[in-house]
Amino acid sequence: MGAASAILLVLITILLPPLGVYAVAGCGADLFINIILTCLGYFPGHLHAFYIEYVYYDRRELAKTGRPNHARAPIIYSDRVQTGGYGYGTGYGTIVQPTG
């Protein structure tokens, strides 16, 4: 994702925090938690959404430079966010090439 998509994601998150979380983490526990936090108050939903986005982009940049962070970030359940999108879903549905 480039800078333009990151800015667009921030604007979406300002308007509706769960939509920003869904764009980064997908449908899962993080989205459910963010929906609950947003219903409890608009500010807690924003904090949670921007934290998830920060971790995602930070892990993405670290992975690009070859220094992935393997420690799990607290309160984030999405593997996609934990890895910065790298390595997410690898090995599922892949075809092994014949060797002979």
Rank of each mutant, 00 (worst) to 15 (best):
A71K: 12
V10N: 06
V96G: 02
G41C: 09
G84V: 06
L47T: 13
L19V: 11
P18Q: 13
E61A: 11
K64L: 14
F43P: 05
L16T: 08
L11Q: 15
M1G: 12
I76T: 08
P18I: 07
G85F: 07
S78W: 09
G85V: 01
G20K: 02
G41D: 06
G85H: 03
C27V: 10
D30K: 06
L16C: 04
M1W: 12
G87S: 11
R59C: 04
I76L: 04
G28A: 08
Y42N: 09
F32I: 09
L40A: 13
T83M: 03
V96I: 14
G89N: 03
I95V: 14
V55A: 01
G20I: 00
L62A: 15
T65L: 13
H46S: 10
P17V: 07
I75S: 08
A23P: 02
Y22N: 02
L8W: 07
A49C: 12
G85D: 03
C39N: 10
Y92R: 12
I12N: 12
N34R: 06
T99S: 14
Y42P: 00
A71G: 14
I7S: 09
H46D: 04
C39D: 08
T99M: 09
G45I: 06
G85L: 07
Y88D: 08
R72N: 13
T83R: 00
L19A: 09
R67S: 14
G41N: 06
L31T: 04
G66D: 05
V21Q: 05
S78L: 03
G28D: 03
P68M: 06
F43G: 07
L16P: 00
Y77M: 03
G91D: 01
A71E: 13
G100Y: 11
A6K: 15
P44I: 02
G89D: 12
S5P: 08
Y86E: 11
R67D: 14
L8V: 06
R60V: 02
R59M: 07
T99D: 12
G85R: 06
D58N: 06
Y56K: 03
Y22A: 07
D30T: 04
N34T: 11
T94A: 11
I36H: 00
L9S: 08
A25S: 13
V21L: 04
D79G: 05
V21M: 10
Y57G: 02
Y51G: 12
L9F: 01
Y57W: 15
C27I: 12
